[in-house]
Amino acid sequence: MADITSIACLYLLWKRERRRNARRLWVHETIRSRTKLGEFHRLLQELRLDDERFQRYLRLTPAQFDDLLARIGARISRLDTNYRRSISASERLSICLRYLATGDSYRTIANSFRVGISTVSSIVPDVATAIWDSLVEEFMAVPSTDEWRSIAGRFEERWNFPLCCGALDGKHVVIKAPVQSGSQFYNYKGTFSLVLLAVVDVEYCFREIDVGGYGRTSDGGILANSAFGAVLQSHVFVADEAFPLRKNLMRPFPGRRVFNYRLSRARMVVENAFGILSSQWRVYRHAFEVNIEVAEKCVKATCVLHNFMRRTTPPSALRGNIPVGEVDPLPGLRRVAANNSAREAIRIREAFKSYFSAEGTVPWQDNV
Rank of each mutant, 00 (worst) to 15 (best):
S150V: 08
Y261P: 09
G229I: 11
M268T: 13
A167C: 01
D146R: 15
D146T: 14
D219Q: 09
S181H: 09
R262D: 00
C164D: 04
P178W: 08
S218M: 11
G255Y: 05
N160E: 03
V258D: 00
R216G: 01
G275N: 03
I222Y: 07
Q233V: 14
Q233R: 15
L249P: 03
L163Y: 01
V202E: 05
A239I: 12
A273Q: 01
A224R: 04
A227G: 02
W148G: 00
N260G: 12
V269K: 01
N272Y: 02
S150P: 03
I276D: 06
F206R: 06
S181E: 08
F161E: 07
Y204E: 05
A239R: 13
L196W: 01
I175M: 13
V195G: 01
A152S: 14
E203I: 01
L249H: 03
C205D: 02
Y214I: 01
G255F: 04
W281H: 02
E157V: 10
L223D: 05
D169H: 14
G190S: 05
G212L: 05
F161Q: 10
H235Y: 15
P178D: 10
C205N: 12
W148K: 05
N187G: 01
F253I: 04
P178A: 10
T191L: 03
F185P: 00
R158W: 09
K247E: 10
H235C: 14
E271C: 04
Y214M: 07
S181A: 12
S193L: 08
C205L: 09
N160P: 05
P244Q: 13
V174K: 14
V231W: 05
S218T: 14
D169S: 11
